[in-house]
Computed example of a mutant assay.
Amino acid sequence: MKKTKIYLGLALLAVTGIVLVAADHIDAPGSMGTSADIADFYAFEPTTGSDNTVFIVDLQSSVLPDLAYGTFDENVLTEINIDLDGDLIEDKVIQAIPRDGIMYFFGPINPSQKGLNSQVWVDAPLGSVEISGTTAKVTTTTDGVKLFAGPRQDAFFFDFFQFNEVISGNAPLGFKTPEDAVDTFDGANTMSIAIEIPNSMLGTPTAKNALGLDVYKTWVTSNKKQ
Rank of each mutant, 00 (worst) to 15 (best):
K114P: 09
S112N: 10
A96C: 07
G101Q: 04
T71E: 12
V63L: 05
L88H: 11
P65G: 00
V120W: 07
G70I: 03
L116C: 08
T53M: 15
P108R: 00
Y104T: 12
Q95G: 10
D66W: 11
D40V: 02
D91H: 12
L77K: 08
F44H: 12
L126F: 04
G107I: 03
N81F: 06
M103T: 12
L59M: 06
G127H: 05
P46Y: 09
L77V: 09
I82S: 07
F44I: 00
Q95V: 05
V93R: 12
Y42Q: 01
V93C: 05
A124Q: 14
G70N: 07
V54D: 05
G86V: 13
P108S: 00
G115T: 06
L88R: 11
K114N: 13
I82Q: 04
I109Y: 11
T48C: 07
M103L: 10
A96F: 02
M103N: 09
A68V: 03
D123E: 15
V129G: 03
K114A: 06
V129F: 03
Q95C: 06
I97R: 11
I89A: 14
L84H: 12
V129L: 02
P65V: 00
Y69L: 14
Q60W: 06
L67E: 15
K92H: 09
D100G: 03
A43I: 04
P98R: 09
N52T: 14
L77A: 02
V122H: 11
S118N: 11
D85S: 07
N110W: 00
